[in-house]
């Protein structure tokens, strides 16, 4: 599923909303999550999951082609951890898997 498919589904199931509003709703959700992470905040959506920012220390990397050492600066990376409910749903229906 892509963002446009999500918007199309939402528009189909909510015919009273204008298309532009449906797009705005979806954009608002992901923009807000992005903004919170950019401010270093965490976003917790119970049952779905939590978005957090993890710090990665500076390290010496290597150019895999030349083998040359390159300094890699400290950086922040967005991280998502699925909530229990979503984790269980994703795992459901696999033969031999728990619950």
């Amino acid at each position: 599923m892509t963002k446009s498919e999500l918007i199309a589904e939402l528009a189909a199931t909510n015919p009273h909303l204008r298309g532009a509003d449906v797009e705005l709703i979806v954009a608002t959700i992901f923009d807000q999550i992005t903004g919170a992470l950019a401010r270093g905040e965490r976003v917790e959506l119970r049952g779905f999951g939590a978005f957090t920012v993890k710090r990665r220390n500076a390290r010496t990397g290597r150019n895999p082609r030349t083998g040359e050492a390159v300094p890699v600066d400290e950086k922040a990376v967005p991280f998502f951890k699925a909530g229990k409910e979503l984790r269980d749903r994703v795992n459901r229906g696999v033969r031999g898997a728990r619950g």
Binding site: T34, L37, P78, F80, A82, L86, R87, V90, N91
Partner: peptide
């Protein structure tokens, strides 16, 4: 088992 992974886009990585 099946696990969920999230791969942030380069836009999100840059914003963070």
């Amino acid at each position: 088992r099946r696990v969920l992974v999230f791969r942030p886009s380069h836009v999100l990585k840059a914003r963070v």
